[in-house]
Design a protein around this nucleic acid. Structure first.
Lengths: 337, 337
DNA sequence: TTGAAAGCGATACCAG
DNA sequence: CTGGTATCGCTTTCAA
């Protein structure tokens, strides 16, 4: 490895003090234009690259943003991450990525590491099994925003779509098509997003005087295969359903697969509504009816918001985005309509 | 923001020198057990968290790994990233993520930033439009491994699957089913992965004395919609094909969608083979026949390898993994067989 | 087994 | 406009 070129090397080579070099590199107006150019030329020739660690130490700023998600490979989060990274780079920040697999100890560990790294802000999908560590963050004044979930126990910054509303219109859509036996499948019980979506589902049923049957409400992990499994569970328990509000698109696709395996055709025999409008939903057959969130844009909003919080700690972020129904090919009138 | 707790605060509070505290925190055997415990207790009570910036500055080590990909939302890379992050955390490294969108200047910028951040190693999907910046990395002795692509212009570390072979068995599979008019769709022309896959495709055709028609070879970006578009292009140019070797699964799924839109049924009227075996391929209808790479594991191999390189710069990584054919439901005998 | 001093690379602050 | 000095938080090195 070549010896590291520091500001001192540039100073020596250019016959200026290291302070003048520092100013030149930071484009300070306090340096004569000519001097600046001379120094910059030397710096370039030597291949000088500013050391971010040195800068961070003295400035106390790292331009690091922590991104803590449960599963970066999940298409929903993957798209969000893409949007977040995009804005981060644009604004001169860097993204450090952590996966928690929905495990509390990994989440706690990630946050500890991020504090140690002096991340300036954190975007996090909390597992919601405990929130002590987040309360701690709050006390420390390290800005964070929860992604697509909401902590109820104390005030935090969050940005999410109106999950109750989204699920409500999804359910209502099925009811209007004539469905009465509608299941709600997927999601982790203790996660706010699921609670909210379940609320919307129940509200829609109640409004139409349709009984809420707990047997038709199933929780699951978020994966294609979990969706498939949960659907089979309902089927095998002998419950007769014609419509499904899936927790999200990934679960919905799993359900579609299982339905197909079991010889049930979608939407003729069973209608399915997803949630999120991930890209693949437009390209599968049949195309999935779903509730749409603007994922890439949402990611950008997240990143812009955390940067705003970093720049001005006083502002509080509480943003709720209205999702909308996208009707495609997985919903139709029930068979015996 | 509470004042930052440093090693000095712990030293004062515990009545030891900051050196002893440092040793205690790093679990040095040079500290008496009792002293260590006392100090650790104080540290915990004060909420001390080791500052990674300070450590990095003096040690010259950051435990940062740069991860530079063209599109982290692409399911192939998303899965790889997940595997990489998993190992990184396990080994005490942190992952900084950059997307390049296949743009050279973003790639160059990302590398510059990573050098500035003193990343210890880089995993990169190079856009391959130029490689000067990578040559520079090599000269600097900053270890890097190219992901799923190979630089031909100079020696680098790489890990990839045997693309030519994978594409060869994909094509051969179609030929054995009786196909003769086989297209190759997707991928960027200047990317090594595509060159290799195209080579395999051509080799299989030649072996069976099937003419290679350049009209049936189409390049494209890597996205569902690009796959769809490219397929339509072939169709609209009046070329009659019965089989398709897709550059990868994402492109293949796009093609399936377009085929469906055009009223062509898969596999009855057209057979399709993908590449990568991303998770969704098992859950769509019809399930995609594809060439399988162990994605999560591959990610873990990448991360382990870069860490090995970081620990011992002398080792060179050149690993080629044999992919295998997974026959599912998108390939069958051609219609007029 | 413990401690003091130097230094990692850069900037803030104060002088000139 | 330019330069000197202290300092960020920690470890290395040397000394006790």
């Amino acid at each position: 490895m070549n010896k590291k070129i520091t500001i001192i090397d540039v100073a020596k080579k250019s016959d200026y003090s290291l302070m003048t070099v520092s100013r030149a590199i930071n484009n300070s107006p306090l340096v004569k234009e000519k001097t600046k150019n001379k120094i910059l030329r030397v710096a370039k020739k030597l291949g000088y690259i500013q050391d971010a660690i040195g800068v961070s130490l003295v400035k106390g700023k790292t331009r690091l943003i922590g991104l803590v998600v449960i599963d970066s490979a999940n298409p929903f989060y993957a798209k969000l991450i893409h949007g977040i990274e995009n804005i981060a780079v644009e604004k001169g920040y860097h993204v450090i990525l952590f996966n928690t697999n929905e495990e509390l100890n990994r989440e706690v560990e990630a946050i500890k590491l991020l504090i140690g790294l002096r991340a300036e802000g954190i975007l996090i999908v909390p597992c919601q099994k405990s929130h002590k560590h987040l309360l701690q963050l709050k006390r420390n004044g390290l800005p964070f925003i929860t992604i697509s979930r909401r902590i109820r126990e104390f005030e935090t910054n969050y940005i999410l779509n109106d999950n109750a509303y989204g699920s409500y219109i999804a359910t209502k859509h099925l009811i209007e098509l004539g469905h009465k036996e509608i299941a709600f499948i997927g999601g982790n019980k203790h996660v706010s997003t699921r609670k909210d979506r379940l609320k919307g589902y129940k509200k829609a049923l109640k409004e139409q005087n349709i009984n809420i049957k707990n047997k038709l409400i199933i929780d699951s992990n978020i994966s294609y295969s979990s969706g498939a499994k949960s659907f089979c569970k309902i089927l095998d328990s002998g419950n007769r359903i014609t419509g499904i509000v899936a927790y999200n698109d990934v679960v919905a696709i799993g359900i579609m697969f299982a339905a197909n395996e079991r010889g049930l055709s979608v939407p003729e025999e069973i209608s399915i509504v997803g949630y999120d409008n991930i890209e693949i939903t437009k390209f599968i057959f049949p195309r999935l009816t779903t509730i749409s969130q603007p994922l890439q844009k949402l990611g950008e909003i997240y990143c812009n918001s955390i940067i705003n919080l970093i720049d001005d700690k006083k502002e509080i972020v509480k943003e709720i985005i209205k999702p909308k129904l996208v009707v495609r090919d997985t919903t139709a009138n029930p068979y015996d309509f």
